[in-house]
C-alpha cells in the first residue's frame, strides 16, 4: 500500500544547513529535510537555520507556521491527515473520521496519550479518485470505509 517509501537516513542538522546555505530560496527544502530529524521544528532548530541562512528567526517561524506540512511542536509518531474536501466529504469522509476518532479516542488537532497518532484535517490530497482518502505520514490510503480504516489503523 505504500506509495512513497523514502529510506531516509536521519540527516545531521549542521550538514543539512551547510548543504542549502548557498542556495537561495531553499528554506522550504531545508525545513522539509530538517523536520526528518525530530519530526518537528523546535525553536533551537529554527534558530540554527536562521543563523545558517542569515535570516531572522521570526521569518523562519513565519514560514514554518504557514505550511501545513511543517510542525513547530512535537506530534505523534504517525500523523493521520484526513481529507475534508468536498469529493471526500460526499463519499463518506465523515464516517471515516468518526471511525478514527472512535478507535483512537482523539479529535482532529489532538494526539493520542501514548504519543503514537496525531489526527488532523487536510485539504484535498489529490486522491479523490479513491475518495475518501487519508494519509498517514507519507503513505496514502483510499476508498476507505469505517471498517477499512479501522483495519488500516490496526496495522500500526
Amino acid at each position: 500500500m505504500t506509495v512513497t517509501s523514502c529510506n531516509i537516513q536521519k540527516p545531521n542538522l549542521g550538514e543539512v544547513i551547510e548543504k542549502y546555505k548557498e542556495f537561495p530560496g531553499s528554506l522550504l527544502d531545508l525545513l522539509h529535510e530538517v523536520q526528518e530529524i525530530d519530526g518537528y521544528l523546535s525553536r533551537d532548530v529554527m534558530q540554527q537555520i536562521a543563523e545558517g541562512l542569515g535570516i531572522s528567526e521570526s521569518k523562519v517561524y513565519g514560514v514554518a507556521t504557514f505550511y501545513s506540512l511543517f510542525k513547530t511542536a512535537p506530534t505523534g509518531q504517525f500523523i493521520i491527515r484526513i481529507c475534508e474536501s468536498a469529493p471526500c466529504h460526499i463519499r463518506g469522509a465523515q464516517e471515516v473520521l468518526e471511525a478514527i476518532e472512535e478507535t483512537l479516542g482523539i479529535k482532529p488537532g489532538e494526539t493520542t496519550l501514548d504519543g503514537k497518532f496525531t489526527l488532523e484535517f487536510t485539504s484535498c490530497l489529490g486522491l479523490c479518485g479513491v475518495a475518501p482518502a487519508i494519509m498517514i505520514n507519507d503513505q496514502v490510503y483510499g476508498n476507505l470505509t469505517s471498517d477499512r480504516v479501522k483495519e488500516v489503523l490496526l496495522n500500526f
Partner: peptide, 17 residues
C-alpha cells in the same frame, strides 16, 4: 526582524519567533 506574520488564514498574527 523581531516580529513576522505567523500562521495562516484567519489564524494569522504578527508574532515574535
Amino acid at each position: 526582524g523581531a516580529i513576522s506574520p505567523a500562521n495562516r488564514g484567519i489564524d494569522t498574527e504578527i508574532a515574535p519567533a
